[in-house]
Design a protein around this nucleic acid. Structure first.
Lengths: 145, 145
DNA sequence: TATTGTTATACTCTATAACTATA
DNA sequence: TATAGTTATAGAGTATAACAATA
């Protein structure tokens, strides 16, 4: 067998772990016809009724430019509605249909998180999550745009 | 401030940590005009002279279809050369110029790995890497194609 | 029949620049 | 001037299907 020079590189493992994580989430969300970014926004709105797009962007770390089509798609599926709060920004709320979908998405994501943690031996879990927080915060300062 | 319902979801943290990791790597490789996938392949070939594309695919978890243009680009930059081993497969080797670039890429990646680990408190590092291995192995079975 | 490599295509997330309208 | 949102475009990684040539 071939040597993998990166087999024990944390960054390499991190990337592959993230891919495994994403693929598992995609599989769970596909039946709901939701992409991960869409599900994130939907659930964020549900947790913060009336939130504006720019607030959602800041909280989720999504670039403003990418939020626009994302919310449009949620709106076109009647999961989310936009109501003007002033001349230039909208308050976002989840529609009744949206709440149904959000409920299912939330269940899938929670089930996924459990599955993910279950893949890690119990005694490593806390350190794992804590370590991730440090790295995730790494370039949180380098704001998008 | 807005509530982030995912702030403590391991999967969410994993994804953001991976993004931070990738952005840092991209910044380091940009001056070398190498993408991460290209650097990975270049260094894999250097560690395994004569390796074939399909072997490289299996080892790095890259789909065959994506390896083709990747190696083509490395070849067009005279970093890697293909020599037929049988009628349908090529052995890949790193050219003298390639070795220079590989050396620099290796230094950047190693420096990055150090920086990454340094962002994690010392007492968490071992658990962190170990936990990542479990998750990275998660869908290693679900082979690409 | 199975394997190697290739092409074409598509999906998802992310990123930047330029623009309109409003504050 | 700064902010909110939009549009267009691009880059990077990943994925599938279909194909030719070879084993």
């Amino acid at each position: 067998m071939i040597k993998n020079p990166f087999a024990d590189y944390p960054g390499y493992l991190l990337r592959h772990a993230s891919n495994a994580n994403l693929n598992a989430i995609y599989d769970r969300l596909r039946p709901l016809d939701l992409r991960l970014a869409e599900a994130s926004v939907l659930l964020l709105i549900q947790a913060n009724p009336g939130v504006t797009q720019s607030e959602a962007c800041q909280t989720l770390g999504i670039a403003r430019a990418n939020m626009a089509p994302l919310v449009s798609r949620l709106e076109s599926k009647d999961l989310v509605s936009r109501t003007p709060v002033d001349g230039r920004s909208y308050g976002l709320t989840v529609s009744p249909q949206g709440k149904e979908v959000a409920k299912r998405a939330d269940a899938e994501l929670k089930a996924h998180e459990k599955e993910l943690l279950d893949a890690v031996p119990k005694e490593l879990r806390q350190s794992f999550v804590e370590a991730l927080s440090y790295i995730a915060a790494f370039n949180a300062a380098e704001q998008t745009e």
